[in-house]
Amino acid sequence: MAQVSLEGIRKVYPNGFRAVQTTSFTIQDGEFVVLVGPSGCGKSTLLRMIAGLEEITEGVLKIGDRVVNDVDPADRDIAMVFQNYALYPHMTVRKNIGYGLKNRGTPAAAIDAKVQDAARMLNLTEYLDRKPAQLSGGQRQRVAMGRAVVRDPALFLFDEPLSNLDAKLRNQMRIEIKALQRRLGTTAVYVTHDQVEAMTMADRIIVLNEGRIEQIGTPSEIYHNPASTFVASFMGAPPMNLIKAELDQQSVRINGCRDLIHAPQSFDGPVTLGIRPEDVEVDEQGLVSFHVDILEELGAHRLLHGRIANQPFSVMLGKDDAAQVGETKINLKPEALRLFDRETGLRL
């Protein structure tokens, strides 16, 4: 178990591409941190630098108290689970799981016991003598997990380990991985492009965009207090509504509309107004007119998709709330309003 710290880490690929801008953060001992962001934003690059599979262009990387910039991947006391599992095709499940231990000089009897333990924990006992080609996707995923846990490393690294599984298995493994990490208490860095995985698994989320950190925070902080319009629109499904508005002291005027709302903070000028779809009420006496184009029935709740002052807007209602397509009035909960700089997209 260990704390991981990145101090001014930067990555420029040999072709000159700047995949990760100067980045600093610290992961606490035993913490489960999720790196999330759209495809190509540099998540894997960052993870692979921590693993030692990619050279660090600049900056200092510490695992525990040790600077590991120049330490071999095998000596960093890490274990990694790859998106395509990266199992050794010619080895049995038993050998796959035990390979890392064998190369670290663990006695055969101890390897055997540890492999058995890991296999039991992951329901793989009856598959120990099979080759990876004879396993299903979910089982291969478990073998990859087994290979990681059996070594009892200081740090787990996961690179989109669930994205090759079907939705049902993904939900199940999500819970299992999280539970396993809790039980073992091992520090973990988990990369995903799926915001649901990020929200459900993380102790802390790091949102990346174009090689930069947009925000670091707990799932609840990220969800309720996004630091930028990028985070607001990336996290949450459906995403936070973002509409253009003018602010005059504490009065919000939505573009071209006369509706005035009381803002939680004071500012003068153009802003982007953010509000989560569930923080909106339909109300006959409401201040804002909302035109509903589509009604989406989701069982537990309903989504209304439409427009406010010709800007796209969504509202989430409980399953018992009445709703219909057409013109209606809504109220925005004042305490749920988030204001962003129109130019920079940053939170005001």
Partner: peptide, 25 residues
């Protein structure tokens, strides 16, 4: 696959060992 070799880099320090135990097979 590149990732198989990378997994081996994490599992085995010795390049010679990796060659004979993973690459060559």
């Amino acid at each position: 696959p590149r990732s198989v070799r990378e997994a081996a880099m994490i599992d085995n320090r010795s390049a010679t060992g990796r060659f004979w135990q993973v690459t060559f097979p």
